[in-house]
Design a binder for these strands. Structure first.
Lengths: 258, 258
DNA sequence: CTTTGTGAACAGTTTCACAGCC
DNA sequence: GGCTGTGAAACTGTTCACAAAG
């Protein structure tokens, strides 16, 4: 039913680990930069530094694609660019629709990296009739009524949702019904989709909250250092438990959402 | 030297696994929704469904925080909201600066979820003198010259980079030098930062490329199914290798990843 | 000599399944 | 009976370290 899955369940990426797939675009970007500077070959060490990973990981990643390097020399930049592009499916053209042309949707439409690398903005869609016909990033906005027709006419399989949270699931359902099988979701909601549909989410506030967690820990650590670092070494669960259990009472601090 | 790290090396999150931390904001959002509907308690099964994970994972995650549930009953919504908020450091106020007020920066400034949940946009900063003084989302944009002063005056420890790729590293360096220790990077570049500084990146084109990879596989699988699914069961590495090694020559196959 | 490619060890994450408590 | 909390098992991802190739 509506109890669909987010992300991939895990039917296994036919040999290429998901973690590796997620890094291929990073390698590709670094390689493209080298290619533009006409660098002919690059070592795993150099490329890894440019991509912000370590070289062992990079070599392991590449080993899933095949043996594309030359021992003692390194990797041929152009060749690798091609191989990774092909592996990622970027040698073909992907028409994409963006639904929800508010601030964010407009920013996405204007984003250059979108147009490059095999992705083409096939249409912009918004529910506001006042937006219809108005060009954003040179593309006229179309009304949501046209959604199904647009998807089918353009053979769109990738959709970007940049609507308010409340509209996201509904838009998602319509996209999927019309044939979209990959969704990039910017709305702060969990989307339910049937099996076989991939959803990836980009969520500003989640990222910030993760940063806040670590930020808080940094502050805490300084304090702990002052008090003598006695606690480390005790089974983590027990320690947590302790501080957690003391929680209940006291006031709920001011700032919170609750 | 400048060869800093992206993400966290992994000094271990004081007992709470990184994967769990990344899900806490999801739980928090689902709980907040329940709280608004005045739902008093929730089972791991229900909450997991709302957050888009499975219940075993959720219970395991919560077990790292402490024993906050009641067997046979479930979890108290309000209490959990508070505990998770506290764990994430959201019971305090985090002033944030956004650097780069283009399309995306403006969209971020306008994004509501920003203001809620303990984050406050302390300042908007842009390098364009023409922007200075212009209000965006009700906040006047300030010039990059003021960056250091703004950070220090407001005690900012979290910065958001929404500049073009070319400017990102430079902005990052200045933020870090001024005292920022957590960065959310929207620019499509790898940032180098010293140890102790956290960077998280949000990258539209990487997400799209990952979707394209899976999308391509879906197409390939249909073709493979037609040809009789003989290959499954052979050690994945060997299969990969084989098809990969044939790569160099010849035409790019029509449907398949190869 | 340099640098790749990769088994093998290790670390982190998810899932299972059930004991323990309400 | 229902639901949490958690060891243990299974799985995925990372790092090590070195043999093989140029």
């Amino acid at each position: 039913m509506a109890t669909g899955r987010t992300h991939r369940p895990a039917t296994r990426s036919r040999g290429i680990p998901e973690a590796t797939v997620a890094r291929l675009p990073l390698y590709l970007r670094a390689l493209t930069a080298l290619s533009e500077r006409s660098v002919p070959t690059v070592s795993s060490e150099e490329l890894a530094a440019a991509a912000g990973v370590n070289s062992a990981k990079l070599r392991k990643d590449f080993s899933y694609l095949g043996s594309y390097g030359t021992r003692g020399v390194g990797y041929d930049v152009e060749y690798l660019v091609y191989q990774i592009s092909r592996e990622l499916g970027l040698t073909q053209d992907w028409p994409v629709v963006i639904v929800g042309i508010g601030n964010l949707g407009a920013a996405l439409a204007n984003y250059g990296g979108f147009a490059s690398r095999g992705f083409r903005v096939a249409a912009l869609i918004d529910a506001d009739p006042a937006m219809a016909g108005k060009p954003v990033a040179g593309i006229p906005v179309q009304h949501t009524d046209e959604l199904e027709k647009i998807i089918e006419d353009n053979g769109v399989s990738i959709g970007v949702i940049a609507t308010p949270a409340g509209a996201a699931q509904q838009v998602c359902d319509r996209l999927v019904a019309a044939g979209v099988t990959s969704i990039l979701n910017f709305a702060p909601t969990v989307l339910s989709v049937p099996d076989g549909v991939d959803v990836r989410k980009v969520d500003l506030s989640i990222e910030l909250q993760i940063l806040a967690f670590h930020e808080q820990r940094k502050a805490g650590e300084e304090a702990a250092a002052a008090a003598g670092a006695a606690v480390d070494g005790i089974p983590a669960a027990a320690v947590r438990k302790q501080s957690a259990d003391k929680g209940p009472d006291g006031d709920v601090p001011a700032v919170m959402p609750a």
